[in-house]
């Protein structure tokens, strides 16, 4: 049975520049929202390697590279890409409505390792 989506309004789209990420804490969860050429994607902010802030990483295609030690994660799935740490990150459904980025914090997606 699928639950109904629970969208939380986060911020205006212009607050997240093109190909950059921004951290935001919602309901006790710290997530990073990325603007991948106009598509918004949300992922857990803390790198499983040493806790680096992924929001500050360089975006490469649909992946982000942690600024501390270069671990790379797929923003769409949360899966590590060629990373030393095989842990996957949680991703969250994200959409845009009237120029506002909305995130569904209920429907956490996490690929099992």
């Amino acid at each position: 049975m699928t639950q109904e989506s629970v969208w939380t309004a986060i911020t205006k789209t212009e607050n997240i520049p093109l190909r950059e990420g921004r951290a935001v804490t919602v309901g006790g969860v710290e997530v990073a929202i990325f603007n991948v050429n106009g598509r918004f994607l949300t992922i857990e902010n803390a790198c499983p390697h040493k806790g680096g802030p992924l929001c500050d990483g360089i975006v490469s295609g649909t992946t982000v590279v942690c600024p501390l030690h270069g671990q790379r994660f797929d923003l769409e799935t949360g899966a590590p890409v060629l990373a030393a740490q095989p842990t996957c990150l949680a991703t969250f459904p994200t959409r845009v409505e009237n120029g506002i980025v909305l995130v569904d914090l209920e429907h956490v997606n996490r690929i099992e390792n």
Binding site: T8, T11, N15, I16, P17, A23, I100, L105, E106
Partner: peptide
């Protein structure tokens, strides 16, 4: 350089649980 270069984004609303 952009409105949130240094500013921490605060969510517009609290999540409804």
């Amino acid at each position: 350089a952009n409105p949130t270069q240094f500013v921490q984004i605060q969510p517009m609303e609290a999540p409804t649980k």
